[in-house]
């Protein structure tokens, strides 16, 4: 992390930026600013190299090295950045077949991911396969609705994590999709799936109690379904205390975060950025001085 410090102390880079000018105008660092920039990916599916130029849908898009360039650029501009992933890191290119996910974990560590959750394909190497690759990840996996007791994964994930970014205390937990019918039984073994809505309510309440200013749910449930199956939109509507759901699984390209109203009548944002690392989501939260409101009466203006 020496390099990061070095960058911080150097002159703030300006010009040639990708972000809209209004955002740029606010991006000069203020030591007292309570601003948090969240960057996120989902369903990167072992896409380490960019898509080939002859790809029928996404020619030349994506690539981990390029993603890293973007992330580093934003880190130079913003003091408080969180980098999150909503699962399905594994499976999709021969890098996974050949190396079992080790490279994906090494690269995410190098890029400085802060937190991730597990998607169904992160079980593709089996529970032991995940543990083997996970050794190379120096960031926590939050899995709140999988009970891994007595499985090889036990102890390798956590219920939630709390990260202090300047004045802002961020609570992050994760929910995953039901694996029956999606993942071969043998791959997930004794893992127990627990209803994500109950768990999300419990975790969010707990994180609120612990004084978190922003509560984020990393979800691999999927954006929405025509059936009754629980999705991010349903989760947003049927819970309280969550501010942002970063989703995955359905490979949904949203143009902007969806606003849902939760049980308290508050707004919850739901975002997802397709798959394969084609896009990175960026959400900037700017808190004013009285941000530590005890009651969230959300007004969308």
């Amino acid at each position: 992390m020496k390099r990061r410090t070095f960058v911080r102390n150097s002159v703030v880079v300006s010009g040639g930026l990708l972000i809209a000018p209004s955002i740029l105008a606010q991006s000069t660092k203020k030591s007292s600013s309570a601003k948090l920039t969240i960057l996120h990916t989902n369903d990167t599916h072992s896409n380490i190299d960019p898509f080939p130029e002859n790809h029928s849908k996404y020619p030349g898009k994506g690539g981990v090295a390029r993603r890293f360039e973007l992330i580093e650029k934003i880190r130079r501009e913003e003091e408080h950045v969180l980098l999150l992933d909503a699962g399905d890191i594994f499976q999709g290119t021969p890098y996974f077949n050949k190396f079992g996910g080790i490279l994906e974990m090494k690269l995410m560590t190098e890029m400085g991911y802060d937190v991730a959750t597990m998607g169904n394909h992160d079980f593709d190497g089996g529970l032991e396969g995940f543990v083997k690759a996970r050794e190379f990840a120096k960031f926590p996996f939050v899995c709140s609705n999988y009970n891994f007791t007595n499985t090889p994964i036990e102890g390798h994930t956590q219920d939630y994590t709390i990260i202090q970014k300047g004045k802002i205390k961020v609570g992050i937990f994760g929910v995953g999709v039901e694996m029956k019918g999606l993942v071969p039984d043998i791959k997930y073994g004794e893992t127990e799936y627990i209803d994500p809505i109950d768990v999300a309510n419990d975790r969010a309440a707990e994180l609120k109690k612990k004084g978190c200013d922003l509560i984020i749910c990393l979800s691999h449930l999927g954006y929405e379904y025509s059936s009754e199956k629980v999705s991010d939109r349903v989760l947003a509507q049927k819970t309280k205390n969550i501010h942002l759901i970063i989703g995955g699984h359905t490979h949904t390209f949203l143009e902007k975060p969806t606003e849902e109203i939760n049980l308290n009548g508050d707004t919850v944002l739901v975002n997802q950025v397709g798959w394969a690392g084609i896009n990175v989501g960026r959400i900037d939260f700017e808190f004013d001085q009285k941000m530590f409101a005890k009651k969230d009466v959300i007004v969308v203006e």
């Binding site: 090494k106 190098e110 949203l254 990175v280």
Partner: peptide
């Protein structure tokens, strides 16, 4: 609490030799 958002597309624009390449 104001929120701004952008879905940033990863394109050639960011192609630059960096330490990720040496790992890969």
């Amino acid at each position: 609490l104001s929120v701004k958002n952008e879905q940033v597309s990863i394109t050639k624009e960011y192609a630059k030799e960096n330490r990720i390449d040496s790992i890969v």
